[in-house]
Amino acid sequence: MRKLFFKHLYTILSPQIMNKGNLMETNLVIEGFKFMGLGMGTVFLFLVVMIFSMNLMSYIIHKFFPEPEATVAPTSSAAPQQDNKTVIAAITAAIKHHREG
């Protein structure tokens, strides 16, 4: 039974299939699966390497280049401002949602 299934699968996915006439044509579906394997593999490989390097980078930066506490003035004034913005955005979104809903 299992053999039969594989045999059938082989005829669908065989590299060369008979196409109506006598012309031999390469099976594009197989090519498509190859593309998928290589493509998804590369995308994930890239992102996994990127995640590792991001973690490594933040580890190094936090260990050796912590944000200077002395020059807090410019950074701290910028950071809360950003926080405020997100808070304000969140509040407005919530209000809007409340009014609409």
């Binding site: 594009l28 992102l47 990127m50």
Partner: peptide, 27 residues
């Protein structure tokens, strides 16, 4: 939150899944 990058990778399955779909239509 670096590991969420994997979600951005998984969504690319839409590209390659459709590629197979398109060549299957051709086939």
């Amino acid at each position: 939150n670096p590991k969420t990058a994997l979600l951005g990778g998984a969504a690319q399955f839409g590209i390659f899944g459709t590629l197979v779909g398109a060549v299957a239509l051709h086939q």
